[in-house]
Design a protein around this nucleic acid. Sequence first.
DNA 1: ACTTTGTGAAACCAAAAGGTTGCATATATT
DNA 2: AATATATGCAACCTTTTGGTTTCACAAAGT
Lengths: 105, 105
Amino acid sequence: MRRDIFQAIADPSRRAIITLIAIQAMTPNALAEHFDISRQAVSKHIRILDECRLLKKEQLGREIYYHLDPQKMKEVADWIEPFRELWEVKFNQLDQVLQNLKKKK
Amino acid sequence: MRRDIFQAIADPSRRAIITLIAIQAMTPNALAEHFDISRQAVSKHIRILDECRLLKKEQLGREIYYHLDPQKMKEVADWIEPFRELWEVKFNQLDQVLQNLKKKK
DNA sequence: ACTTTGTGAAACCAAAAGGTTGCATATATT
DNA sequence: AATATATGCAACCTTTTGGTTTCACAAAGT
């Protein structure tokens, strides 16, 4: 089972779960109410996110509140970061074009 | 066929292709030399990346040089960005702990 | 004690993913 | 003209994915 964060965020339901618990820790039941799929399907998504160490559990009685571990999210940011200069260079080039147009006026 | 950039970067071979062509535009054949899979398998990955508008083609005779379109990569950065404050807050809290330890000395 | 509630795990299924081999076609080379 | 090269597409196969339904079990409520 390949199980890394990139595979974890590939699924739109899982990205939605991540966004939801980033705002506020939630139980599986509470999460499931936000989706059209079954509670068990949500549970399977949680399991995958958990296996990627994206979650932290806080058990209160029979309820389990799932929190997001933002540190793990950083891995995605770290991978994308080296490409930033590429799209920003492009932006700067456009910037240059616009400045040249200004000067011509 | 769900085909968005998150699904595109979920596969490690495709992430490797992205990294390779970010450095330098390459033909499918040249790319395939970097992998253990067949040229056709690489072609299928290219197709998926292309469908996500991650690539730009430059045809020279019978060769096709694939370039990365960095703008599309920005979509990932944009999604991850709102979470940044979460992991940076955490870092700052750790920072605070370390400072407090210093003061106690 | 009995029932309800919150959760996870197992068995199953259809569709998608990721690979293969073989073929078609356009462009270069001889 | 004949051959070699670069590429993409189709058919096929196995494994993975994402869903379902059913069951088990612990904790809370009555």
